[in-house]
Design a protein around this nucleic acid. Structure first.
Lengths: 184, 184
DNA sequence: CGTTTCATTGAACCGGATCAATTCTAGTGG
DNA sequence: CCACTAGAATTGATCCGGTTCAATGAAACG
């Protein structure tokens, strides 16, 4: 999720409780069944949040590039165990804001309450984008959109991971690429 | 969108600028290209918000039953012209909160700022539900889910409208129903 | 009534899913 | 440096379910 620098302000305000972590490629930050108790910001590397199916055909909800804010916001709000995993796609460095202190900050003043609303608005807009992406575009259109709007994703990640973001199987992505190559 | 009674409190606070409207079945409250400048609450009847395609194959984002809160929140936040329409499915009575006064109320105190955050959180959770619905369920599963969770919708609305919520064509819904009837 | 919209049904089509086999690639250890 | 291995990517064949186009039947409404 993109942010408008309010995250910097929050990190500074919570500087004494902020946690910095480095993760190796493939390492899981939040597993299914855990309760998500932080909001994170990517400093270096790429993270992803995804739904994990029984087989290994998982569906990526979103990727997060440096500067992006990530959290299982639904789990945070509902105090539910997570239905999603958050994982490092590359070697990663992240800044983590503990939920307890973050929400306490919100309660401490009008200003911070407003920051909280802005964060929630940003979460909503991000989710809304994902809806439109899935609802209106065919798999092929999604891939073209991704090539146009987020070429870094395509360059840096495997076919398998890209397919999981498009909501299709790797084989189908392979065929889509072939189709597009022919019609150019 | 379901609410936790914060909407009552807001309506009361804004009672001198609240607008009540009655709409006939089929009437449009917000057209594409309009700027959405209110948050509404359904008093009686059913509303829906939907994306309108060139042909009349539109996609319903959501239906709203009495008590539900509706708004093109994305358009409200981004001050964009709407890409969705909001329409009365039946004879309807709604309460409308003008955006200007609502947002001014948010700025007036810590308490109202917090109410604003809760509203934003609710918008997010609603959008998230819709994502999961579309991402994980096949059209047939979506129909079954709807039968189980929101039977009122199925009873009260036409096949055409239900299909638009499921993200499929009316013909396909017809066949799904037939299939389910056979296997019972 | 008659007209219009909705719902159903049939036939052909299409694209993604699935199962399976093969190739390609990167990383590992001898 | 090469051989081996495991995972990723490609390709083929087949299947399945939703789409599309078209026709018919049913219901709603003036």
């Amino acid at each position: 999720m993109k942010n408008n620098n309010w995250i910097e302000e929050v990190i500074e305000a919570l500087s004494d409780v902020v946690e910095y972590r480095t993760l190796a490629k493939g390492e899981t930050l939040l597993a299914i069944g855990d309760v998500c108790n932080y909001v994170g910001r990517v400093d270096q590397g790429i993270m992803r949040m995804y739904y994990s199916n029984e087989s290994n055909q998982d569906i990526s909800f979103s990727f997060y590039l440096p500067g992006d804010v990530f959290t299982n916001y639904e789990g945070l709000l509902k105090e539910q165990v997570s239905t999603m995993e958050i994982q490092a796609m590359t070697a990663v460095r992240v800044t983590l804001l503990p939920k307890k202190e973050l929400f306490a900050l919100y309660e401490s003043s009008f200003h911070w309450q407003k920051i909280g609303r802005l964060m929630s608005d940003a979460m909503f807009l991000h989710a809304k984008e994902r809806i439109d992406f899935l609802l209106f575009l065919t798999p092929e259109q999604r891939y073209r959109y991704l090539m146009r709007e987020q070429p870094q994703i395509i360059q840096l990640l495997s076919q398998k991971d890209i397919a999981s973001y498009l909501g299709i199987q790797p084989q189908s992505l392979s065929r889509i690429k072939k189709r597009l190559a022919l019609t150019n």
